[in-house]
């Protein structure tokens, strides 16, 4: 912390020849930057969030590590510089002269502008590659995704947000529903995220997937789980009073275990009549229209919102 230098650290350069300050700063900086970058790459990188549970997580971890590699020298340069000036160029008592009137230095300014521009453009190119290569990096891509994973064995999972829980629907298994998210290992997953009421955000932290759930919008995101294990799903967009409690857990299993679980769930829901009662699978749902329950549903306070105050019976076209 540059500012925490004790005020009594006089720079004893009075009688001697002026040292090459630029070189000194550069040397201090280069050592610090090297150490920092080595630490980041070899010590910190393997532990950086969001871990390596899925393909998009691996890419995000790499991305964060690379940005940290670039950021650390920049920050250290500024701190080193300010630390150096604070140690060496303090005002001394009795010296009431002003400093040297330096108004600018064209070469230095051009170098700085060029340097930052290069860093920024490099970050942009790297970020774009990291966005496109892992099929959208696990972020929500809207209803018409531009970047998709290759291969044909995509597992489709619909994530339906509502106040205040997520429901997961598997269209390839008869449209069965589950309240826990179960995924197979090593198979690309296509999440279709939508909402029944307000904006939620589906965030599977360890899978590095985040996609906003908007009502009447199908928001698609991709990832491929790489390891089996449990993970947590949280809502990351404020969605009302129980937003903080809107989380559940999911797990990644082996493909065979997943098949067994999915088939069993589908069969059970079929037998119990759940599948028949569910609305037909669609990319979005309008909760005010539930044919099985009749028109009355829109008058039941609370079905579409926290307070039942969400376009109560007065939908102008469906009075």
């Amino acid at each position: 912390m540059a500012e925490s230098q004790a005020p009594a650290a006089p720079a004893g350069s009075d009688g001697r020849a002026e040292p090459n300050h630029g070189l000194r700063i550069f040397l201090i900086w280069i050592v610090l930057a090297l150490v920092a970058d080595l630490l980041i790459w070899f010590v910190w990188y393997p532990h950086l969030p969001p871990g390596r549970m899925s393909e998009s997580a691996e890419h995000q971890q790499l991305d964060i590590a690379v940005l940290a590699l670039a950021a650390a020298p920049v920050m250290l340069f500024v701190w080193t510089y300010f630390g150096y000036t604070l140690v060496n160029w303090r005002h001394r008592d009795g010296d009431d002269d002003d400093g040297p009137p330096i108004f600018g230095h064209t070469g230095l300014q051009a170098t700085w502008i060029g340097g930052t521009a290069v860093i920024v453009l490099a970050a942009f190119v790297f970020g774009t590659v990291e966005l496109i290569v892992p099929a959208g990096a696990g972020a929500g891509e809207g209803p018409l995704p531009v970047w998709k994973p290759s291969g044909h064995n995509l597992l489709q999972v619909q994530v339906i947000g509502q106040q205040w829980q997520f429901t997961y629907r598997y269209p390839q298994f008869g449209g069965m529903e589950s309240t826990t998210l179960v995924l197979p290992d090593n198979r690309p997953v296509e999440f279709h995220v939508t909402s029944l009421d307000v904006i939620h955000s589906f965030w599977a932290y360890l899978l590095a997937v985040k996609a906003d759930a908007n009502p009447n919008v199908d928001n698609v995101a991709y990832t491929t789980p790489k390891h089996t294990g449990g993970f947590t799903v949280r809502c990351s967009e404020l969605c009302g009073i129980w937003h903080g409690a809107m989380f559940d857990s999911g797990r990644v299993t082996t493909p065979t275990a997943f098949q067994a679980w999915a088939r069993a769930t589908e069969l059970r829901e079929h037998q119990l009549g759940v599948l028949a009662a569910l609305p037909p699978y669609a990319l979005t749902y309008d909760p005010t229209v539930v044919p099985q329950l009749g028109q009355e549903v829109v008058k039941v306070a609370g079905i579409t919102g926290a307070n039942g105050y969400y376009y109560p019976p007065s939908d102008p076209e469906q009075p």
């Binding site: 969030p49 969001p50 998009s56 890419h59 995000q60 991305d63 964060i64 940005l67 950021a71 920049v74 920050m75 500024v78 701190w79 970050a123 970020g127 990291e130 966005l131 892992p134 990096a137 696990g138 972020a139 955000s201 965030w203 932290y205 590095a208 997937v209 985040k210 990351s236 967009e237």
Partner: peptide, 22 residues
Amino acid sequence: LIGGISGVFLSDVPADTTEHGS
């Protein structure tokens, strides 16, 4: 400096996917 550099992390879509809304 800390605020600005962390902003670069947020501007990067893959990194932002984890950091957004957190």
